[in-house]
């Protein structure tokens, strides 16, 4: 055994495998005319409530399925199914995000080709889901007013990878010190191309314009 230190060249991107799998899955989805939306947010930001409110506006025009990722429960999938939309629950078994392989397993189990749109409710956190591509056509995120307007400074990657941002619980704005203008400026400094909607999934405010935007995008992607 020698004790001289050697240097090994590696030059490998550790996310390359997942990125390649995500790309392949995305191609397959496009071919079967199914749009995948990856919805990300903190725990309790309103992902499930927003999906339910959105389904009401789009389910007459699009065949939609929902994939619920949860560390270890069935609650969210049961809520969606109760509203009359097909839902599948993926237990991530402690994993704090979905990667492309897990998403593929879920999509195949639900026979994804039947749907125009599949909405993935990713695991609630703003860190890991941002690192791992899922194969989605649209990365969407929710930031709810009670979480505070400083989140773009703390989780820049999440804001940078999304095409659309829903500011939820806007009904709570008056009661909080959330500065909408400052927040928008912080988000746009990281991602100038992002589309922003202000919504309340509780009152229904702003859900219409967001649902129209989504329908439009789905039609373009699945054309």
């Amino acid at each position: 055994m020698s004790d001289t230190v050697r240097l090994i060249e590696v030059k490998e991107d550790i996310l390359a495998d997942n990125n390649a799998m995500a790309k392949a899955l995305n191609d397959e989805l496009t071919q079967s005319k199914t749009c995948l939306v990856n919805l990300m947010a903190s725990p309790g930001a309103g992902k499930t409530t927003t999906i339910l409110a959105t389904l009401e506006k789009i389910k007459n025009d699009l065949k939609v399925g929902v994939m619920e990722a949860d560390i270890d429960s069935m609650v969210d999938a049961e809520k969606i199914a109760a509203s009359g939309t097909e839902a599948i629950q993926i237990r991530t078994g402690g994993f704090c995000h979905m990667d492309a392989t897990m998403v593929r397993t879920g999509l195949e189990a639900m026979d994804f080709g039947r749907f125009d749109l599949v909405i993935l409710e990713n695991v609630g956190n703003l860190v890991c889901p941002a690192e791992f591509e899922t194969g989605a056509h649209i990365n969407a995120m929710i930031l709810s007013v009670p979480e505070g307007d400083d989140k773009p400074l703390k989780y820049p990657l999440m804001f940078s990878i999304c095409q659309v941002l829903l500011i939820n619980k806007i009904d709570y704005l008056e009661l909080s010190d959330f500065n909408l203008d400052l927040f928008r400026q912080r988000v746009l400094s990281i991602n100038p191309n992002i589309t922003i909607f202000e919504i309340s999934s509780r009152t229904g405010q702003g859900i219409g314009p967001w649902a129209d935007w989504l329908k439009d995008r789905v039609k373009t992607i699945t054309k």
């Binding site: 004790d3 001289t4 240097l7 090994i8 590696v10 991107d13 940078s160 912080r186 400094s189 191309n193």
Partner: peptide
């Protein structure tokens, strides 16, 4: 938190080129 503008043309729309990578460059081993 300030809005970045292009130093060359003052444009306000940009796309991310790099900044989200995790690369293992090399390693020292025995």
């Amino acid at each position: 938190g300030t809005k970045p503008v292009c130093p060359s043309c003052s444009g306000e729309k940009h796309s991310l080129v790099s900044g989200r990578e995790y690369i293992i460059k090399n390693m020292e081993v025995l």
